[in-house]
Design a binder for these strands. Structure first.
Lengths: 148, 148
DNA sequence: ATGGCTGCAAAAGTTTTGCACTTCT
DNA sequence: AGAAGTGCAAAACTTTTGCAGCCAT
C-alpha cells in the first residue's frame, strides 16, 4: 500500500501537470514544501525552506508560483487575521481552520453543519454561493492552562 | 421615537466616551464615517471620506485610530480575502459576511447554526474558542444574471 | 499642566512588476 | 524555435513609527 505522503505528493504533481503549467524544478520544490505536513506556511517560510535545497531561488519566483498555483486550483490561500497569506494544497475535502492565539498552531476541522448553513444563506439572501470559509480562534488545551 | 441612525450614533459615541479614549474631532469623524450605513470601508476609503470634512486629517491618524478603536472594542476589523482590512462598528449581535464577487457588495447575515458549530469544534478539538468568523463568497441575484 | 493625540515624513513589511536571460516543451 | 519561467532590482501598496508641536481633560 502506498504511504499517505507519497499519495498526496502524487496528487499534487498530477494536479501540476494537468494544470497546463510547466514543471520547473523551482515550482516542484515549492509545491513539495507546501504539501509537506499541514503547516500552512507563508511565502517567506516557503522561501526560506526552499532555499535550503536551491539557494539560488528568488522570493519573486515563490510569489509568482503561489499566484499561479492558486489560479490553477492546485493550492489555496488562507488568511488568519495576520498580514501575511498562508498556503495549503487544495484538498478534496472541504475543511476549515482553528487558530490558537497562544501558540499559533492551526488545526483543520470538518464542518458538519456548513452545508446546511450555506443553503440557509443562499436561500435567504438570494446568492449563488461559491465559497464558505470558517475561521475560529481560541486557545488550545495546552495554552489554555497557562491562562488560568 | 429615535431614528435608527441617531440611536446607532449615540451608541458609538457612548462606547467612545466609556473607552477611556479622548474624544477628538478626528476620532469622532472617523467613527461617524465607519458608522454610516453598512459599508465596511477600508482605511483609505475612510481617509478619503474624512478629508472632505477635515482636509488636514492625515492617513496615519486614521490608521492609529482604527487600531485604538479596535483595541477599545468599539469597531471590528474584517478581512474579505483582499490585502486591505475593512472596518465596521462592533455590533451587539454576532453576524457574518457574504461578499459578492461580481459587484463587491457585502451583506451581513446572522448564523443560526454557528453556536452549535462552535460547541462542536470546541469539544472535538479541546479548544477554548473565543471567536468565530464566517465569510461566504458568491454572486448576488443581480450579478448572477450577467453570468448566465 | 500634562499626557494623549495629531501631522508630517520616513520606514517597515508584504507582494508585484519590468527586464534580460534561461529553460521547458 | 518559441513560449513560459527565473533572478535581480526596483516599485507598489498597506500599515507602522519617531518626533515635535497641539489640544482635550
Amino acid at each position: 500500500m502506498m504511504a499517505t505522503k507519497e499519495k498526496a505528493l502524487l496528487t499534487e504533481r498530477q494536479a501540476l501537470s494537468s494544470s497546463g503549467l510547466r514543471i520547473t524544478s523551482q515550482r516542484a520544490l515549492i509545491l513539495d514544501i507546501i504539501g509537506r505536513g499541514h503547516e500552512h506556511l507563508d511565502a517567506d517560510e516557503i522561501y526560506r525552506q526552499a532555499r535550503k535545497k536551491d539557494p539560488r531561488l528568488s522570493l519573486s519566483t515563490v510569489y509568482r508560483n503561489l499566484q499561479m498555483l492558486k489560479k490553477a486550483g492546485v493550492i489555496d490561500e488562507l488568511r488568519f487575521g495576520e498580514s501575511r497569506h498562508h498556503y495549503e494544497i487544495k484538498s478534496a475535502v472541504e475543511h476549515h481552520h482553528l487558530v490558537c492565539l497562544g501558540c499559533g498552531k492551526v488545526v483543520e476541522f470538518k464542518c458538519r453543519l456548513c452545508p446546511e448553513m450555506r443553503k440557509d444563506v443562499a436561500r435567504k439572501e438570494g446568492f449563488d454561493i461559491t465559497g464558505v470559509e470558517v475561521t475560529m480562534t481560541g486557545y488550545c488545551a495546552k495554552c489554555r492552562q497557562g491562562r488560568r
